[in-house]
């Protein structure tokens, strides 16, 4: 899965989708942005800062958070602990401060817990705050993962197939939820998706990838009409539509 000669620009406060058939390089693209892979050539800029060569933890601090295609929560931590881990970068308690339990640490912990609870409430998980995340149902795990990503206070949130494995009702709920993320919190969202229906419904701009190259870019309507896309992607038959 390689990505080559890709040029994507993401506007602030949009929902920007990246689609493409399996193996088109979508997840690789994500891994490059979030610092897990180092691109051999090319630039990745966030508000004119270069991200290339930075470790993933630095990139998070600059404001890019992600979720994973095959949910990767911390299974033996509770839901609220998962969210609190997401806040790590914004907390400042020092080692000595923690041991002495200074007033600053106390206050910070309290604030962090409040914020975590608020986030859990936002994703409808406040009742399950003390459950181990591995025991949560599938849909809850997806939303918890998003809550954890939100806890890092991102400017750009990268969602990797957030509706994978969901039925149509759950998918619709997830779409509404994603839209509310942008509308209520003002976060720019980049979405990797497999399902055309989801993408067409919520995104402002769509980029189509194929074999690691950009095939087309535009509004949902433009994409729908683009002959190259129809040929390479939709043209695979109605199978993709029905997916």
């Amino acid at each position: 899965m390689a990505v080559d000669g890709l040029d994507i620009e993401i506007e602030e406060k949009t929902i920007h989708s990246v689609i493409g058939p399996n193996g088109a390089g979508k997840t690789t693209f994500f891994n490059c942005i979030t610092g897990f892979y180092k691109p051999e050539a090319g630039e990745i800029l966030l508000e004119n800062h270069s991200l290339v060569g930075l470790m993933p933890d630095r990139i998070v601090r600059l404001g890019i958070a992600r979720t994973y295609q095959n949910i990767r929560l911390f299974p033996d931590l509770t839901a609220i602990e998962n969210v609190l881990v997401g806040m790590h970068a914004h907390l400042k308690s020092s080692y000595l401060g923690i041991i002495l339990n200074t007033p600053f640490v106390k206050k910070e912990e309290q604030d962090a817990e409040d914020e975590a609870n608020r986030l859990l409430k936002f994703v409808n998980l406040e009742a399950k705050a003390n459950m181990l995340s591995k025991h949560l149902p599938y849909g809850d795990q997806r939303r918890l993962e998003i809550a954890r990503a939100l806890a890092t206070r991102p400017k750009l949130l990268c969602l990797d197939e957030p509706t994978a494995g969901m039925n149509s009702g759950e998918t619709q709920a997830m779409c509404d939820f994603i839209q509310s993320l942008r509308d209520d919190l003002g976060i720019t969202i980049m979405l990797i998706e497999h399902q055309m229906r989801v993408v067409m419904g919520i995104s402002e701009i769509i980029t189509v990838l194929d074999y690691g190259k950009k095939l087309a870019e535009g509004t949902p309507d433009e994409i729908k009409r683009n002959p190259k896309v129809i040929e390479a992607y939709l043209g695979q038959g109605s199978a993709a539509q029905a997916h």
Partner: peptide
Amino acid sequence: MPTKFQRW
């Protein structure tokens, strides 16, 4: 554009 050496 940075070279390979710079990236390294």
